[in-house]
Design a protein around this nucleic acid. Structure first.
Length: 239
DNA sequence: AACCAGGACGTGA
DNA sequence: TCACGTCATGGT
């Protein structure tokens, strides 16, 4: 049964990698941590974050910046914005597009992304603290399904399972079927955990996605390292 | 030196 | 609907 397999995989990944502490927040990066192994900005097992509109906004900007771009590049862009004092919705709203572009260059696609961030910022301000509907986000130019769901899950704490290229790749291999339809994959996963409490769903979707990213980077890469993959007993690609 | 990274949009068939 | 081109920097 697919559902049980998906549940098993979640628990295996969680046990192997541990809580991932998504979504990283820039202010936590500068905090002195007694755990040197803790990746900066991440906050494992603290699901209270984000705790204010400013942090929500930062996550949303990061979600746009990371479109088809590695997070290390996004960090550079966010650092630039932070150091300039730009990483606030009221400031982004004030500054010119060219000014924004010059700070987010490391993340690539800077012309498009600057426009996307400006448009989203206008929307975010008009929210005035309200939590947006998914359809509202999808109507905004520059926000597709994945970006919308990453905002809903990690910034607005709503239980949407987000699907990305990694998710499609891993589970295409595991089930030995081409899984490419965003909506089908999302409803499959949300259905698996439909009976969980809302609070648990949030944690599960939060961790699951980040664990998928972690496993995809380390093991289930484009050229997979099946030899030391601890999912191989469940993976049809390896049978 | 090609290839890829936590996608989305516009176009033509 | 779908396949494809475009956007762009910096890592490996």
């Amino acid at each position: 049964m697919k559902n049980k397999k998906i549940r098993d995989i979640y628990h295996i990944l969680l046990k192997q990698y541990g809580p991932q502490g998504w979504w990283p927040l820039i202010d936590l990066r500068n905090k002195t941590s007694n755990d040197v192994h803790l990746k900066k900005g991440y906050h494992p097992e603290d699901y209270t974050l984000p705790e204010n509109r400013s942090q929500q906004f930062e996550i949303c900007v990061g979600a746009i910046l990371t479109q088809n771009t590695s997070w290390t590049q996004v960090e550079k862009a966010l650092d630039n914005l932070k150091n300039k004092g730009f990483l606030y919705f009221n400031i982004i709203n004030e500054i010119g597009k060219e000014e924004l572009i010059s700070e987010i260059k490391p993340s690539g696609y800077f012309n498009q992304k600057a426009g996307k961030i400006k448009i989203f910022t206008d929307f975010f301000i008009k929210l005035n603290g309200r939590i947006p509907k998914r359809e509202e986000l999808l109507r905004i130019w520059g926000i597709g399904k994945e970006t919308a769901d990453s905002m809903l899950l990690y910034a607005f704490k709503l239980p949407f399972f987000m699907v990305d290229a990694y998710t499609k790749r891993i589970f295409s291999r595991i089930f030995n079927i081409i899984m490419d339809d965003y909506d089908k994959i999302q409803s499959l996963f949300q259905n698996v955990f439909r009976d969980e409490f809302e609070r648990d769903k949030l944690i599960i979707f939060n961790e699951f996605h980040s664990l998928i990213v972690e496993h995809s980077k380390n093991v289930c890469k484009k050229k997979p390292n099946c030899y030391n993959c601890f999912l191989k007993d469940l993976c049809e690609h390896c049978l």
